[in-house]
Design a protein around this nucleic acid. Structure first.
Lengths: 66, 66
DNA sequence: TTGAAATGTTAGGTTTATATTACATAATGT
DNA sequence: ACATTATGTAATATAAACCTAACATTTCAA
């Protein structure tokens, strides 16, 4: 199961979903879907998010058992 | 632009495309497409590939200018 | 040198990521 | 209290990921 810390890190930087979306070239709904864990974004988008949130991509997304 | 080291690391381990595909639950064609850089796999598949090839996902896939 | 295994590649189909639009609610500032 | 902004969420549409099947070519062991 895929987990992520997007919502937590976005909050830490005080970005809105729209702002973060703009930084990585997706809509705010895409950010919302990712935060809800509803799908598995592309590695390209994942790398951009990691860069925007200043964290290693492996620390932003990870796989958990079950 | 998205770059990756899948082909190089797969060779290092002596895995065939089919073997690697089986480890990460995709077909050999999907592995071939990724090696050719034809698309941007999901973060889920990227994490599985990094695990199979024993490298950090950020060292397996990265973004380059242009 | 022959045959199997690995790889390259293409076509057509299904599934999923992502966009667009829209509406409702929550939060915030004036 | 009101207006604005942020978020939740859903419907429909499109693009891209991924699959299956197939055939051609390359590699490599017997």
């Amino acid at each position: 199961m895929l987990r992520n810390r997007v919502k937590e890190l976005r909050a830490r930087y005080g970005y809105t979903q729209s702002e973060l979306g703009k930084k990585v070239d997706v809509t705010r709904q895409t950010i919302a879907f990712i935060e809800k864990g509803e799908f598995s974004p592309s590695i390209t988008l994942s790398l951009k998010l990691a860069q925007a949130l200043q964290v290693e991509v492996g620390d932003l997304f990870w796989l958990e058992e079950e």
